[in-house]
Structure formats: structure tokens, C-alpha cells
């Protein structure tokens, strides 16, 4: 039961992350690889506050969101001037900067040592120690973020970001100041990614910069692409698949001296097959 709950928690956290990136990449059509940076900002906010202060988990989530909103506002101002490839490149640059801060600001982040001993959340004296209780809490957060995302994409604001994906120049002709919309959706998605980060830190109880390297952005992007762009259910399916596939392969009996390597090969092959037969992802409306 604990293992299944663990998988449920990981899936929930990465669904939150995948949905947040989907708002930017899927719905708005902006190829961003920054999201792991905001994931990390949320994680470090919770880790630092829970280990160095008396501030509790739920407050730390709010602090993480504020930190992500602030940093995404600043970087979004710059990114919203770019299109296409330059946007992706600039977002990668930001990711690298944030990673360097995590790695080098040792007095605050612990540098390469990371931060250990992060507490589990506590609410009215109840500590979410067990995997099952933590899963329940994570699911509540996930449902809340799902409804937020659903509301956004089906609103008039959502209509505009989808139109940006289709033809930003045309939208500007109609009088839309599209950089504000791009900035806003970027900030909202950063806040969501930070929530996922806070849950990640508190669940794993240890974080270090390696969890927030630029390569992890590619990992999250692959969830969005596999699940299908511009579909929240697709984002969830993509995240679940990428998390579950290697776990499933742990149970496939193979000689121990090649098991790990064979699992990697099978995992890679399965992903390739999926993309050949379903290049728009499981439930995707667009291709990247």
C-alpha cells in the first residue's frame, strides 16, 4: 500500500508540474524550458523555511508561490519579447542561472550538499507522515490546481492564449497586447510549478540542486508532449505514463546483471513506439 501511495504521490506532483507547463507550451505555444527552475524555487522555499525557521509547510507553499511569481515576472518580462527558438534559448539560460544559484548560494541552499531533514506537513497537530496521508493532501492540491487550470483555459483569457498559439501577430492586429497575456500565463504556471516543488521537497525530505538541473525541464516537457499538448487530461496521462513505465519495468523479471540496463532500453523503445504511432501524444490537439 505504501508503495502504491508513493507512486500516487509522485504522479500527483508531476501531474501538477506537467499541467503547469502545458499552460505555457501546450495552450500558449511557447516552448519554455524554465519550469524546473520554478519547481526548484518552490522546493527550496519549503526546504529552507521548514529547516531554518518555525514557519510551517502551508505557509511555505505560499512563500514559494510568491517567490516563483516574482522571479517569473522578472524573467517573463524579458522572455515575452522573444518568439520561438529564441524564447526556448532564453528560457534555458534562465534555468541555468537558477540552477547555479541553487548550487553556489551555499549559506542559504546548502549548495551541493542540499538540504536534508525537511519535515512533513502538519495541520492542527496531525503530521502527514504516512504515504497514504501525504497522498490525500497531494491529491487535494492536485484537484485544486486542475480546476484552476481548467477555469483558465476555458475563460476568455484562455481563448486569447490559445489564439496566441495560433497566430500572435494577428492577435496584435486586433488590439491585444499579447506580451501581457504571455507574461500572465507564464507567472500562473510558475506559481503552480512552485506548489509542486513544495510538495516534492516535503515528501522526499531531502533536496539538492541535481533535482532541478536543466535536463529535468526536458523530462517534464516529455510528459507534456507524450500526454498531448493543450489538454490537461493528456498532461496527467503523460506524467503518469512516464512515472509508471520504469516502475512497471522493475517487476519484469530479468537477470540481475542486465536488469537495470534492459529496463532503460525497453523504456526508451516504448517511448519511441508511442511517438511513432501517436506523434501528437495521447490526447493532444497540436504537435510541438
Amino acid at each position: 500500500m505504501a508503495y502504491l501511495a508513493h507512486l500516487g504521490i509522485l504522479i500527483s506532483i508531476f501531474v501538477m508540474l506537467s499541467m503547469s507547463l502545458n499552460l505555457v507550451v501546450g495552450y500558449t505555444g511557447l516552448l519554455s524550458v524554465t519550469h524546473v527552475a520554478f519547481f526548484g524555487i518552490g522546493a527550496y522555499a519549503t526546504a529552507i523555511l521548514l529547516t531554518m525557521t518555525d514557519i510551517g509547510f502551508f505557509t511555505s507553499v505560499v512563500v514559494g508561490i510568491i517567490a516563483a511569481l516574482t522571479s517569473s515576472f522578472l524573467i517573463g518580462l524579458i522572455l515575452s519579447k522573444f518568439d520561438d527558438d529564441f524564447y526556448a534559448l532564453a528560457s534555458l539560460g534562465f534555468n541555468i542561472i537558477v540552477f547555479s544559484i541553487f548550487l553556489n548560494l551555499q549559506s542559504v541552499t546548502g549548495g551541493p550538499f542540499g538540504i536534508s531533514g525537511i519535515d512533513r506537513p502538519e495541520l492542527f497537530g496531525f503530521i502527514f507522515t504516512s504515504n497514504v496521508s501525504f497522498l490525500a493532501l497531494t491529491l487535494i492540491a492536485l484537484v485544486a490546481l486542475y480546476f484552476l487550470s481548467h477555469f483558465i483555459v476555458n475563460s476568455s483569457f484562455g481563448r486569447v492564449i490559445k489564439a496566441i498559439r495560433d497566430d500572435e501577430k494577428a492577435l496584435q492586429i486586433f488590439g491585444y497586447r499579447t506580451h501581457y497575456y504571455k507574461l500572465t500565463i507564464f507567472m500562473i504556471s510558475a506559481g503552480m510549478a512552485a506548489v509542486a516543488g513544495s510538495f516534492f521537497a516535503s515528501y522526499i525530505t531531502f533536496i539538492d540542486p541535481s533535482s532541478f538541473a536543466a535536463t529535468e525541464s526536458v523530462f517534464i516537457l516529455s510528459m507534456v508532449i507524450l500526454g498531448g499538448l493543450a489538454d490537461n487530461k493528456g498532461a496527467a496521462l503523460g506524467a503518469a505514463t512516464i512515472i509508471l513505465l520504469p516502475e512497471f519495468l522493475r517487476f519484469v523479471g530479468m537477470p540481475s546483471d542486465i536488469a537495470a540496463q534492459m529496463r532503460q532500453v525497453i523504456y526508451g523503445l516504448l517511448l519511441i513506439v508511442l511517438m511513432i504511432y501517436r506523434p501528437q501524444g495521447f490526447l493532444g490537439k497540436y504537435r510541438l
Binding site: H6, L10, F200, I207, S211, E247
Partner: peptide, 12 residues
Amino acid sequence: LDPKMTASATNK
């Protein structure tokens, strides 16, 4: 050496 995989392996 990926923390989430470490957690998965340990729980399993």
C-alpha cells in the same frame, strides 16, 4: 542517483 527514483526504489 535521482532522488525520486531513490524514493521509488526504497518504497518498493
